[in-house]
Simulated assay, not measured.
Amino acid sequence: MQIFKFLFLLLVFFVTVGAEGQTVVATKKLTIKITNIKENNKILYVGIYRAGDDFPAFDKYWRNIKVPTSGSSEIVEFEVPVGEYAVAISHDLNGNGKLDKNLFGYPKEPFGFSNNFKPKLSSPSFSDCKFTFNHANSTISIKLID
């Protein structure tokens, strides 16, 4: 009988921890309110980045979502663990799937960053736009720059 208890507890351990020793990380909902949307029926690309990701490259995010616009603001949600993040958003007005830029590298389409950071002469760094998500501050707002 003892061997069955031992085998049962061993089975519970492997199911809980996983065969590869992975642990489960608790996540909570991060809500991002995006404002200053000027055109509807276009796509917003919203990317979340962690330290070490290629921020703000609009195709090198940690997690992302594509949202069709239908008003002057949109709300998106991500499930994320506690940590430091930065958000970059682009509004694809011509439907080509990328953020178009002018000769000097400045975006020709609306964009935005967490902390409502407004770049001057170069792209922002992760530290310019980072915020700490600790479940208490579950909503951030980003105003698009056009």
Rank of each mutant, 00 (worst) to 15 (best):
I34V: 12
L44T: 03
I34N: 03
D92S: 04
L9I: 06
G95L: 00
P107Q: 03
K130F: 10
D54G: 14
Y85T: 01
E109I: 10
E109N: 11
T139F: 09
S141T: 11
D100Q: 14
G95S: 00
G47P: 00
Q2R: 14
I65F: 01
N96L: 13
V25G: 00
L44G: 02
Y106H: 09
G83N: 01
H91T: 05
I75T: 13
L93N: 07
Q2A: 12
F131S: 06
F55W: 06
K120R: 07
P107F: 09
L121E: 13
R63W: 11
T27S: 09
L10E: 05
T139E: 15
N64P: 05
L99C: 04
I142Q: 03
K38H: 06
P56W: 02
K130E: 10
G105M: 06
A88N: 08
T69W: 08
I48E: 01
N40Y: 06
V87S: 05
F117I: 09
K101M: 15
N134F: 06
Q22W: 04
K5P: 07
K33I: 12
G71L: 13
G83A: 00
K143Y: 05
I142W: 01
I140P: 03
V24Y: 02
G52E: 05
A51M: 11
F126C: 02
V80G: 01
I140E: 02
N40R: 08
